[in-house]
Design a protein around this nucleic acid. Structure first.
Length: 491
RNA sequence: GGCGGCGUAGCCAAGUGGCUAAGGCAGAGGUCUGCAAAACCUUCAUUCAUCGGUUCAAAUCCGAUCGCCGCCUCCA
């Protein structure tokens, strides 16, 4: 049983799908007028993982994530760059896809663009007009907020509160300052589509309603987005969609917390943001993923170098264990025995725990997708396995094989869902070398030094060996003498 | 001003009524090692912002206070 926190009710609830075995899910994507920043990455990673998790649990998922490709900011950007709004949108959609691929965020089943759903939006607006939920002024169409009795239910405000705090620019043409645009008459030079109200373009909120309707139906299971979309975007979506269809729009509303910088929201307007690609140039994507998943998706998460370094240290540890497991298992074949025949009593609890790992992982994830706890469980596995490995000499070979191969399987099993530690350990450590800019030597140089140092070590010339190590150390390289040779990595 | 959230160790972070307050990073001591590193072992919050209250029992529920943040305007 999956429980999830529903913004609509303010409670953690059991997930009951509209149709047994199926999940329909919509996540608000990005407005494509610039490179996406880490805040966008957080929502994308969280909701991608959530839909992936539903699949793991056997649901047939239909996941929709849209692109808002018509908007004031896109138009402004087009003027700045001297290209058309469509070109701006195309450029940043492509950039977004690249960023997502690097982050290990899969493509959604459907990635609709607003500009490809204008007729659907016009249909919804017509319906709203017919039902008295909207009105036309000079080629603009506005939603009449007072006509929708549940307005404010999602964001838990009432109309009086909103009016009291309204900072909205007063537009005399609107009946109520809270009314919002469904359709905007276009100014000369702006993108425009024909409509019953004259040439214009859709308002922001109507896009998601129309695209949700088209691809998921008038009622669907889950709608997700950043916390900042609760009001007004999602509130308005509900008003439009339910005003139009007369049916409940969405059963579960999920909202992710912000990425903060020094405890402040990362945002365009504050200018305190890092684009995804800037960060990925400094840190491996998997580090960013682990960092993002180490905190529950609804909580704020503070971006800092120290936190990214922690994530990196964690991944090093995961991959070191994976490396040890693979090393032990390589060249060996499964013993033709039953686990219960060879695993000694002392190792039974460990074996049981390892077998249970995917289940323990699911228990954590079932509880509102508690990735932080889930990752904690995997750290437990690392400690247990390392401990076992440290005493491997005293173990029966066939029992060890069974226990460690089961551990590797369990580790890979949860890793696949999390999108973590799925690479080959060798590749991971190799990647770590490449990513680090502090290294001032070439690989050839480093290996030459290591060779010289090992010769010195053979002669037991410790002074010379230490001197070479110091030279490498100053070049940003750290050495480890292992039984099977000397390894290195950037500090 | 209205509405909402948060405050758990040096840092990050789970835990929302009851077993010893997960886990990670950093630190300390030890095993191993030529020395290191890694790994392993031990250690590291009688206490959950503060003060009251409810309860047999509270980090968890209620109230007040302090501090931080978000939304109310485009925002993931």
């Amino acid at each position: 049983m999956i429980k999830l926190f529903n913004t609509l009710t303010g409670k953690k609830e059991e997930f009951v799908p509209l149709h047994p075995g199926k999940v329909t899910m919509y996540a608000c994507g990005v407005t494509v007028y610039d490179y996406s920043h880490l805040g966008h990455a957080r929502g994308a990673v969280a909701f991608d993982l959530i839909q992936r998790y539903f699949r793991r649990k056997g649901f047939a998922v239909k996941y929709v994530r849209n692109f808002t490709d018509v908007d004031d900011k896109i138009i402004n950007r087009a003027h700045e760059e001297g290209i058309t709004p469509a070109e701006v949108a195309r450029k940043y959609i492509e950039a977004y896809q690249t960023d997502m691929r690097r982050l290990g965020v899969g493509k959604a089943d459907i990635e609709p663009k607003a500009t490809e759903h204008i007729p659907e939006m016009i249909e919804v607006i017509k319906g709203l007009l017919a039902k008295g939920h909207a009105y036309v002024v000079d080629g603009d169409v506005y939603y009449r907020v007072s006509s929708f009795k549940d307005y404010g239910r999602l964001s838990k405000r009432n109309l009086d509160d909103l009016k009291a705090g309204a900072r909205v620019e007063v537009d005399d043409r609107k009946i109520d300052p809270l009314d919002f645009a469904l359709w905007k008459a276009s100014k000369p030079g702006e993108p425009a589509w024909e409509s019953p109200w004259g040439p214009g373009r859709p308002g922001w909120h109507i896009e998601c309603s129309a695209m949700g309707f088209k691809h998921l139906g008038e009622t669907f299971d889950i709608h997700a987005g950043g916390k900042d979309l609760v009001f007004p975007h999602h509130e308005n979506e509900i008003a439009q969609s339910e005003g139009y269809s007369g049916k409940p729009f969405v059963h579960y509303w999920l909202h992710n917390g912000f990425v903060n910088i020094n405890a402040e929201k990362m945002s365009k307007s504050l200018g305190n943001f890092f684009t995804i690609r800037e960060i990925l140039d400094q840190y491996d994507a998997e580090i960013v993923r682990l960092f993002l998943l180490s905190t529950h998706y609804r909580s704020p998460i503070d971006f800092s170098d120290a936190n990214l370094k922690d994530a990196r240290a964690g991944l090093d540890r995961f991959y070191r264990m994976k490396e040890s497991l693979k090393k032990f298992l390589s060249g060996k074949t499964p013993p033709p025995v039953k686990p219960e025949e060879v695993i000694e009593a002392a190792a039974r609890p460990l074996y049981e725990k390892i077998l249970n790992l995917p289940h323990a992982f699911e228990e954590a994830m079932d509880d509102d997708f508690n990735t932080a706890f889930a990752i904690g469980i995997v750290y437990d596995l690392v400690r247990d396995v390392n401990k076992y490995l440290a005493e491997i000499d005293q173990k029966r070979e066939d029992a060890a094989y069974i226990i460690l191969s089961t551990a590797l399987e369990a580790f890979n099993n949860v890793g696949e869902t999390l999108g973590l530690f799925v690479r080959d350990p060798e590749e991971w450590f190799q990647e770590g070398r490449r990513m680090d800019s502090k290294v001032t030597m070439s690989v050839e140089q480093i290996e030459e030094y290591i060779g010289l140092r090992n010769e010195a070590r053979q002669r037991k010339d410790w002074a010379e060996a230490d001197r070479i190590r110091k030279v490498l150390d100053e070049g940003g390289i750290e050495l480890f003498d292992r039984p099977d040779g000397t390894a290195w990595k950037p500090k």
